[in-house]
Amino acid sequence: MNQAEVIARLQTIFDDIFLEPVKLTPQLSATEVEEWDSLLQISIVVAVEKAFGVRFRVGEVETTRNVGEFADLIARRLQEK
């Protein structure tokens, strides 16, 4: 899966979680979305791990700065499977 494909899949997960629709772009970061607080972040990570069947290593999600980097991380973990 490339970044665009991962983001398309992420979009469906976000649509389920967020009440106000959020249009995902590679540049989008959590600080730009009002609903996206630290609590929702925990929910997103759990949902993403389940949907993609991956497990992130300690601390690495925190280092991603926007949706694009998060999608790249997911793609890297998918390649290892």
Binding site: D16, I17, L19, E35, L39, L40, I42, S43, V46, A47, K50
Partner: peptide, 14 residues
């Protein structure tokens, strides 16, 4: 499931 409950909780707050 945790994520399902979390989703429900955020709906409740909204």
């Amino acid at each position: 499931e945790f994520d399902e409950l979390f989703f429900l909780s955020s709906l409740r707050k909204k």
